[in-house]
Each structure stands twice: as C-alpha cells, then as structure tokens.
C-alpha cells in the first residue's frame, strides 16, 4: 500500500476536529488513533505527528488547555 500524504491526513484530522467541536475534546493521540483506523496501513504515528504540526503551524488548529492539552479550532473559526 502506498504511503499516505501528510496533507491528506491533516485534512482528515481537520474535518474530525471540526465535526466534534464543542462536543468532544480531542487529544493528539485521539486524532492519531482515528487516522490510523481511517487510513489503515501506510498511516502511522510519525505521519500523524507531522499532520498535527502542519495544522498547528498553519494556524488552522490551536492547542487548548482544559485540565489537559487538546487540539481545537481557533476562536475566529467558530465565531
């Protein structure tokens, strides 16, 4: 199976964060596990880590803190 592109995983992660926003807080490992399940072989922790980095560095997602660290949408995206 061919390797999954980081951008593709990042996009799927973003969709997941968006669809659960306000309902469930997701940690990086929650996203990673969901992506490995979605993409199967070819997607691994390393790719997911890069995808998270891409979402954060681009400003599409940010880290939040509610007694633990989560990945969420920036305030402007939800206003």
């Amino acid at each position: 199976m061919s390797e999954i592109a980081v951008a593709q995983v990042a996009e799927a992660m973003y969709d997941l964060v968006k669809s659960t926003h306000g309902k469930k807080n997701l940690k990086p490992m929650d996203l990673t596990k969901a992506m490995i399940e979605q993409f199967g072989e070819g997607c691994d922790k390393q790719i997911c880590k890069q995808a998270i980095r891409e979402l954060i560095d681009s400003g599409r997602c940010i880290y939040s803190y509610v007694g633990g660290s989560y990945i969420t949408l920036p305030p402007t995206a939800t206003a």
């Binding site: 469930k24 807080n25 509610v66 007694g67 633990g68």
Partner: peptide, 10 residues
C-alpha cells in the same frame, strides 16, 4: 464551557 465525559472521568 465543559465537556461532560471528561468532567465525569476527572
């Protein structure tokens, strides 16, 4: 402001 499952498990 709170997510109930996280709160319960805390």
């Amino acid at each position: 402001i709170c997510e109930v499952p996280t709160l319960i498990s805390s």
